[in-house]
Design a binder for these strands. Sequence first.
DNA 1: TATTGTTATACTCTATAACTATA
DNA 2: TATAGTTATAGAGTATAACAATA
Lengths: 134, 134
Amino acid sequence: MSRRRLGYLLKHAHLRLTQLTGPALEPYGIDGRELAVLHVLDEADPLSQQEAARRLRIDRTTMVALIDTLEGKQLVSRRPHPDDRRKNMVELTTRGRDTLRDGGQAVEEAERAFLAKLPADDAALLRELLDRLI
Amino acid sequence: MSRRRLGYLLKHAHLRLTQLTGPALEPYGIDGRELAVLHVLDEADPLSQQEAARRLRIDRTTMVALIDTLEGKQLVSRRPHPDDRRKNMVELTTRGRDTLRDGGQAVEEAERAFLAKLPADDAALLRELLDRLI
DNA sequence: TATTGTTATACTCTATAACTATA
DNA sequence: TATAGTTATAGAGTATAACAATA
């Protein structure tokens, strides 16, 4: 048998994809993790930092630095929650929305290039299968 | 559309699998990366450190520490290449072969648990598709 | 008492640069 | 000059612990 481990396949597939998406995002001044944050905020805006962190399954302390960076780039803004002043509500700026749209297109293109080795059906199926595993 | 990014899916699928394989390997005193090294050595033993590194697509400096660890656990042994004394030939010890066999079974079981959400056909297909992408 | 954001800190994984010994 | 292994080091990315403000 001697086939490659599933862990190896997942790790290196991710690695190869990142080698495409990283450069693709460079013109927009963000990386994949930052785009993911913009994405969850676009789905449900505004979110508290902790809610955003939970949706991406990252630690809230990691989210602090991520939001710091995005705020520094003026892609998101923080404001205190009106009813619970422990919380920061984070929302996309206009510029953040534009960056999400353009960066998102760039990533989709990179994904298409990455998946070009597969027939379109299989590419869709791969995404579907991974989605069911998470 | 708003589906999750392929990068996110790959990253978190790997993360979840690691949460199963890590504990599964603990009784054998190794982690997934170390098992992967044992695996390439089993396929083509002996290999120079650099050849082993190339097969796993990791840096030769990373391989040094990895082999150090495995040698410390007496799972592999180094000896100088007879014709080129710059090279270290690395080979499995008997104990290394045993650990590979038992650890490999533990990982396969963890993979099966991870893939249990999918029909068997789809699980095999997922592996096949990932393999074609790398 | 518990929660949110924050900071300081440490750990893992990885790669780059420079060294050595060989070729 | 080039290559294999090694070491020192630095950069991501991540998490844990402790703190302040607020609930």
